[in-house]
Write a protein that binds this DNA or RNA. Structure first.
Lengths: 126, 126
DNA sequence: ATTGTTACTATACAAAAGTATACTAATACT
DNA sequence: AGTATTAGTATACTTTTGTATAGTAACAAT
């Protein structure tokens, strides 16, 4: 079964990309671009969900950036912030369904990246 | 068949992402991030391969940015620059195999983006 | 009263990415 | 000699993104 975008590209008469496609692609880009987004999402996938866990797991990230990125991921519906009223306070960042599904995107990116490296090697020394 | 990254995440004992995975992901991010990369790649997929075509096809891009991005895509092995010695000179930017394969990444991003919008709608008005 | 813990915020700054506007080189056509 | 065409480059600037460093709030334990 062929996907939307491949169908679209196959049809040579198509002149313009539908607006909703552009919106969807922009959303995805916003969620994965930046220096810290993928490390944070990967850490959350691994089950590191507290602020301190993330800070320890992601080398050299400052609390300012971690806080900023988590907020952005929250308003974009990628993570959910859960507060447990203990002492000291416990706060967990949990991936939403959409957040978990990002693994498909990451995975395709990984596949392409690996294949691209093989391709470049092949062409450099034929 | 399950992919590399999904396998990795399933194994809870895994503590660190292999270096080559990080490199591959970084490569992919570098190729698709920025305001103009996807529009340029999409235009090239559609068969718009001359500088002027791209300039007309991509609204509001300046020649400086187009030139800069094309150069970057070239050194990263995504496009190939072909010079035809005519008058006026004809220069074509052609996607490499890796460049064409980016459609898989774009497509997965599109799928996720569309599904995410449906998910957000569902949660906003339950 | 001091120290420890978690989860941050505030301020100032540096670097990267993108924009605006004008200009150039090579060639051919009139 | 002046104009058109393609494919860019040059310079100065603004905006966005990320860094460095220090400080805060709410408790509890000693």
């Amino acid at each position: 079964m062929m996907s939307d975008f491949k169908e679209l590209v196959k049809e040579e008469k198509v002149k313009q990309c539908p607006r909703q496609y552009i919106l969807a692609l922009t959303d995805t880009l916003n969620v994965i671009t930046g220096k810290w987004k993928l490390p944070i999402i990967a850490s959350l996938l691994y089950g590191k969900n507290r602020f301190k866990d993330l800070q320890e797991n992601i080398e050299k990230i400052t609390p300012r950036m971690l806080s900023k990125e988590l907020k952005e991921l929250e308003v974009n519906g990628i993570v959910q912030r859960k507060v447990y009223d203990q002492t000291p306070v416990l706060i967990e960042y949990i991936l939403t369904e959409s957040g978990k599904n990002l693994i498909n995107v990451v995975d395709t990116m990984l596949d392409w990246g690996m294949a691209h490296r093989r391709e470049v090697m092949k062409n450099d020394r034929p």
